[in-house]
Design a protein around this nucleic acid. Structure first.
Lengths: 339, 339
DNA sequence: GAGGGGTACGAAAACGGTTTCGTGTTAATA
DNA sequence: TATTAACACGAAACCGTTTTCGTACCCCTC
């Protein structure tokens, strides 16, 4: 088990000073050509690599970015993460992931842990509990310390920072409009409680589409499910309502369950009832019938967030100028709606 | 934007030495009670938190563990990661994830990057390319430096380190046996090239089950697909063979595609043909018919790997004693096989 | 009053680098 | 030949901790 070689070892071995070695390895003009070559050759031979921690301590840059997501099993977050990781890696950054598990406490603990020097900035989507409590003091703390923060998808207006979202309201509107254009009259919305920023926006789009097309809003057309576990009873009950001939679901899981249960009840998809789900994940492609889905372009979202964060991290001046980038979601037509 | 407070600030403010502050904050017996209280109160008031990087540099422990996985979109790896993250977090460790994208080069680059002090140990599953090339020098390098390493799922015998696997061969055997017990005679194997350690083991189990039950091995009963993209042509051609009445698939994606295409060809599942797939992922549950699957207990696998790694990291002595833990996979019966 | 033993604290080295500044040597210039 | 500027390198501070060791001070004892 050979010990890692340090600059000190090289200096001692080659009988030069530490500073000379350091400079030679960065190819500084200050050092003579032959000395540089000697040192560089020796370093390469012994496979010298600078210690990241020491470098981080010195220049107060870790080249790590902290990502906090509510969960890792949802396809959407996985793809966003993929985008972040890809972009960050290409720029020489590593990604430290923490999963908040939709819990406020875990989110806070993880943030505090990472905020003490481990990372150069945060990318995160708020946990369900955080959006419910509306307590963003841990975010405030972090931004006050000057640590860059980018929020994506599940955001809040109360924190001034960069943000990346999709045009939730618009695309929900478009989805409902598509259903209307297909002749549907009883369009349901299957959503979560509206404390989720995204669910709220999607609901707004849904409502606006209805009213713009002179469709009565029927409270019974909106089903709110827990994000924790699917209440099949509630779905079954919901579909007792024969007036429903289409449903927009705010996520893939809701869509899959609803479609399955509707089918079980005897509805034919898409003849009797159409389905559109947010998140174009793996399930939508393999469902039967395949599910028309709203592609949130998670990977692009992740890349965008990472780009915004790294720009903030690397820019010298800290004029507090924040942007919100909007990714345009697209509807992927499949069998669960009629073309 | 208030600056982060350091021990030095506290020392200056309270007119004591740096060492006194450091000791007082750790509640050292060396420091007088009143001094300690004063310092601790001041620290709490100003929300002092030690700088992780400095601590890491000092005690050569980062409390970070590096995870390198081939991809993040496969359900199996996601769940393993979940297990790792959960366990590691509970023990106060953070997780740095790198995705090798099945590429040897990315695996090497990521490892080298992290090995320079950023992490205390590695957990990884080998990339496809690495298993194909059989070049493990980057792993050797890391273990030679004394950095603990735990391999999971995609492992190699050539590296001495801790390992976590499932009983691939056994469970494949059991799956085939189940099909045989159900009266199936033409049992196919849909797998990758056999350079994957897991595919190899599963194939061995498949072969042994056949021969133990006096079933002829027919080369035409084995279909090898690329892990990169699904060749639907090949699958269609494969199912021209009417003798096939069951298939064991080495992953969920293969199973889903095969089942779908078989159904399209007119096979009824499970009457005409049964399917069993490795990985009890989200797809298996939502398929129609639902897919009998082999649950690899990814989360448990991740926890186990994390536990083994952290034990190695934290133990003082380095007697090189390595273990391989075997997680017992279980078969989840669903509609795609006859009970 | 000298010696001894705690007690409570500080100085300084160390972790592994980067960077500023100073300095000895050499060669060019007047 | 004396002056000077360029060159090549080294000393030391610094990043924020931890930890070892030294020591001033007080109290007790004989």
């Amino acid at each position: 088990m050979k010990q890692k070689i340090t600059i000190k070892h090289i200096a001692r071995e080659l009988e030069v000073s530490i500073s000379t070695v350091s400079k030679a390895l960065k190819n500084s003009e200050e050092i003579g050509q032959d000395t540089k070559e000697k040192i560089q050759a020796f370093a390469k031979l012994h496979n010298y690599k600078p210690n990241n921690i020491a470098v981080s301590l010195k220049n107060k840059r870790t080249k790590n970015i902290g990502v906090i997501i509510p969960n890792i099993v949802h396809h959407f977050f996985t793809t966003v993460f993929r985008g972040i990781e890809k972009y960050a890696n290409a720029r020489g950054y590593n990604v430290i992931v923490c999963v908040s598990d939709e819990s406020f406490d875990k989110e806070v603990i993880n943030m505090e842990l990472l905020a003490n020097g481990s990372i150069d900035g945060f990318i995160m989507a708020l946990s369900a509990e955080t959006q419910l409590k509306k307590d963003y003091s841990h975010l405030m703390e972090v931004t006050n310390q000057g640590i860059p923060l980018v929020l994506f998808d599940r955001i809040t207006d109360e924190i001034a920072c960069d943000k990346v979202v999709i045009n939730d309201m618009e695309v929900a509107y478009m989805a409902v409009k598509k259903l209307i254009d297909n002749g549907r009259k009883g369009i349901a919305l299957i959503t979560t409680d509206d404390f989720f920023s995204v669910s709220k926006a999607r609901e707004d789009g849904y409502l606006k589409a209805l009213s713009d097309h002179n469709l009565q809003l029927d409270k019974d057309f909106i089903l709110r499910l827990s994000f924790k576990e699917i209440d099949e009873e509630a779905i079954n009950l919901f579909f007792e309502n024969e007036a429903i001939d289409a449903a927009l679901c705010v996520n893939e899981i809701f869509a899959m369950h609803s479609m399955r249960l509707a089918q079980k009840k005897g509805f034919k998809v898409p003849e009797d009832i159409s389905f559109i789900g947010f998140t174009d994940g793996i399930l939508s492609k393999y469902a039967s019938p395949t599910l028309t889905a709203i592609d949130q372009h998670g990977e692009l979202m992740g890349e965008t967030a990472a780009r915004m964060l790294i720009e903030k991290v690397e820019e010298e001046k800290d004029e507090e100028q924040f942007a919100t980038e909007v990714i345009r979601a697209t509807i992927i037509e499949r069998e669960s709606t009629i073309n």
